[in-house]
Write a protein that binds this DNA or RNA. Structure first.
Lengths: 344, 344
DNA sequence: AATCATCCTTTGAACGATCAAATTCTCATC
DNA sequence: GATGAGAATTTGATCGTTCAAAGGATGATT
């Protein structure tokens, strides 16, 4: 059980100096091919791997991303974050980056964690999720020169185009537009909407997607829009209540929702009588045969890493390749036919 | 915008040497109180935090745990892992430990990741989840002298008491025993069971909990047990199918399940006519008012850290304090009344 | 007052990598 | 063959911390 080989061991075996080995690892181009091959076979022979902490100490880079893991809010939609986490970890690993977790009780505490992780040189970039209006975290990060990318647009008007704020987001407008258009194409005439109270950056955006799809199909007054929609807090119960209200007025023959939680409630409340489309394509939706809008979390993760590493060579589907500061990714509508939900 | 303060800066301000500062941080007891106070105020004044990589390089310890994040299997029960991840991260942070993620495509690949993380000195312990019969991962870790704790018992007969294998697990037997006993106490006489095909360490354990509770209540033949239970793969659809079979024979007036996925299917299939109890207390269960057995993931996380750090002072509820090598934690039955699931 | 043990503090040397500058090698050119 | 420019490689210093051992107070004992 010998100690782990160091760069010095590799150098000795290959008959070169430490620095040459280092160059083979970091800037292979400047090493003569035959030397490089000799070093590489020595690396393979010894099973050498650079000691990350030593490297970090010297370079002052950690090759590690920090991301906060939330205490599972609603829960149903919580799994979106986890899928994102998985995609991010996997794709980060492919680029030699690690992902480190941390928790925080509130935005203020999260900022304290930023400082701690920065000071300890544990991470050299942060990935933020669930940004909100007037988010203090991004401001702190910008002021303190920390690199970061958010999954979620900054919803403050001025912030949206802040050149220091890199973001990736999913086009909720497009998702709800697709869902609504699909229902209209199926012959449904009065497609309702269940979403969250305004102001909500994400929520308002999704509502606009529904509204615009309706308008493209035919003239709709604001009163009609109001009659066909409900704004409630997220949750299965609330979704069910909203659905019963909409059904009572007899004013809808299909409903699109801002989340799977709402959609699940709506689906059960309607007893499967009218089509319901959710958002997030959570496992619950898949299990119950609920149609839903799926966020392409792989693409989001790829976009995040792309922006962070500054390598804009990745192909990211529909992402606008011309803008190096943010990515707006298109979600995908998953249509299903719920079979098993019985009538009330 | 000055550079981050180092231990040397603190020493200069406090008028002591580097090592004394280091001692204040690591072994405060050996520093004279007045010196210690002086150093601490200098630390506070400068906002000094040790550079973790430098520390790691010197001590050869990373103070970091590695844990694999799975690609979201069924999904409904997947959130259990996430809640665990959150609890682990939070409690680890309290002890100055960090949590680093990695992914792997299969157990073999996971072992390769172990090696990589070990060689890079990125982590100094691993936390494994979802152990299974004859798990090659634990064997590798033991052979290679890596410290680790598993969330989940080693189900091989010989492995269970391997002194090198530290584990924490939730007592599934107890959970299903409680659930079954509660239904019996409510006056239900024929409590059925929907679980997974044998052999399944976890699944068989849970089934035994159900069986034993029934037997304690009155004599039951093996034929009766077989008639009142079904073994199917995990999933909402399968749970529903199993429930319809049980209902068709008219042989059950309540059902306990090995998972919330199964229970959700069963609940919908039964139209809420008979009580169903799930396992994991996932957000879906909470949202639908489905009774479920909750795993105390905080306690599990605490147990994992307790075993890893070797500090056995933590109070862990019902955990047997006498055994320093593993913890068996008791789950908690959450009884709810589903209101909204309509009859088929 | 000298001696010694005890406690507290300081000093030099790592840990394993990369940076910056110095050195050696290679090869075309005179 | 000598010269020089550019490429390839090596050398010494350094990142911030802890270890091991040496140094200096302090106070009790003789």
């Amino acid at each position: 059980m010998s100690a782990l080989p160091t760069i010095h061991d590799v150098a000795r075996v290959a008959g070169v100096s430490r620095q040459t080995v280092s160059n083979v690892l970091n800037t292979p181009a400047i090493v003569r091919p035959d030397t490089r091959a000799r070093v590489q076979s020595a690396i393979a022979e010894l099973g050498y791997r650079p000691h990350e902490s030593a490297r970090r100490l010297r370079t002052r880079k950690s090759s590690t991303l920090g991301i906060r893991i939330d205490p599972m809010t609603d829960g149903i939609s919580g799994s979106v974050l986890d899928r994102f986490l998985h995609a991010l970890t996997e794709q980060a690993a492919r680029q030699g980056l690690r992902v480190m977790l941390f928790t925080a009780t509130d935005p203020h505490d999260e900022i304290a964690q930023f400082a701690r992780l920065r000071d300890a040189a544990d991470v050299d970039a942060f990935v933020l999720t669930s940004t909100f209006h007037g988010d203090p975290r991004t401001q702190w990060l910008i002021e303190n020169g920390q690199s970061f990318v958010t999954f979620g647009r900054p919803w403050g008007i001025d912030d949206m185009n802040d050149p220091q704020h890199l973001w990736v987001d999913v086009d909720g407008w497009f998702g709800l537009h697709e869902a609504t258009a699909a229902l209209l194409a199926q012959g449904h005439r009065r497609v309702g909407y269940i979403g969250w109270p305004s102001p909500s950056g994400t929520g308002d955006d999704r509502r606009r997607g529904w509204r615009d799809a309706l308008r493209e199909h035919g003239p709709v007054s604001d009163d009609e829009l109001a009659a066909m929609s409900r704004a409630v807090e997220d949750g299965v119960t609330q979704g069910g209540a909203a659905m019963r209200e909409l059904l009572a007025t007899g004013d809808v023959d299909a409903v699109v929702c801002a989340s799977d939680s709402l959609a699940l409630g709506a689906l059960i409340a309607s007893g499967g009588r009218i089509p319901v489309v959710g958002y997030d394509n959570t496992p619950v939706a898949a299990a119950l045969g609920l149609s839903s809008v799926e966020q392409p979390l792989d693409e989001v993760a790829a976009g995040v890493l792309d922006l962070l590493t500054g390598v804009h060579g990745g192909r990211l589907g529909d992402a606008p390749a011309h803008d190096p500061r943010h990515r707006l990714v298109r979600p995908r509508l998953i249509l299903r036919t719920p079979e098993r939900i019985p009538a009330q």
